[in-house]
């Protein structure tokens, strides 16, 4: 989809965040030359279209003590990967789960499940539970721990020239 110019201006004005004031939408509306009611209506539309997933805050899970972040990766039989992916994604400690293409010969894994915990040992224990669930349909697996956040800014629209 393509955004009209007003919606695009709204995305540009809010993508770095909302002002932390009692009436943030009034402040944003003022800077855009819109009524607050019109801004709220357009934001509701963008949400209904799925352009906005939610409005809220993103926690820094490292700073919250969830310092162990393991990307578990699995080489799962293509015939059952979607069925098993649903079950892995439903595990309470799995925060993201995706099927992705393999990159042979370097990378044989097609199922990615992100596991967060307080320690690497805790994450390794949870990884065993995933291995048990996958059973014989899984030919190999690995776990990649993150050692550093190198960047975390989220999506940015570039300002259009002219």
């Amino acid at each position: 989809m393509t955004l009209n110019s007003k919606d695009r201006a709204i995305v540009e004005a809010t993508q770095a965040g909302l002002p932390l004031v009692p009436n943030p939408y009034e402040v944003v509306a003022d800077t855009l030359g819109l009524d607050e009611a019109e801004l709220l209506e357009r934001l509701a539309d963008l949400k209904a279209q799925g352009v906005i997933r939610r409005i809220g805050a993103a926690p820094n899970h490292y700073r919250l003590g969830m310092t162990a972040n393991g990307m578990t990766v699995w080489d799962v039989d293509d015939r059952v990967v979607d069925l098993l992916g649903e079950r892995v994604g439903a595990l309470p400690f799995v925060t993201h789960c995706y099927r992705r293409p393999r990159a042979l010969p370097d990378w044989p894994y097609n199922l990615f499940a992100m596991v967060h915990g307080s320690t690497n040992e805790e994450v390794a224990e949870k990884r065993k539970e995933i291995a048990t669930l996958l059973g014989e349909a899984c030919r190999a697996g690995d776990i990649l721990f993150s050692t550093r956040i190198l960047k975390k800014t989220g999506m940015r629209l570039r300002r259009k020239e002219n």
Binding site: L3, V11, T14, G17, L18, A57, G154
Partner: peptide
Amino acid sequence: DGLLTRFGPFFDAEALG
């Protein structure tokens, strides 16, 4: 203090095309 990385709308780049 860095406990929250940002506050505001979370956009879906795919829904934006």
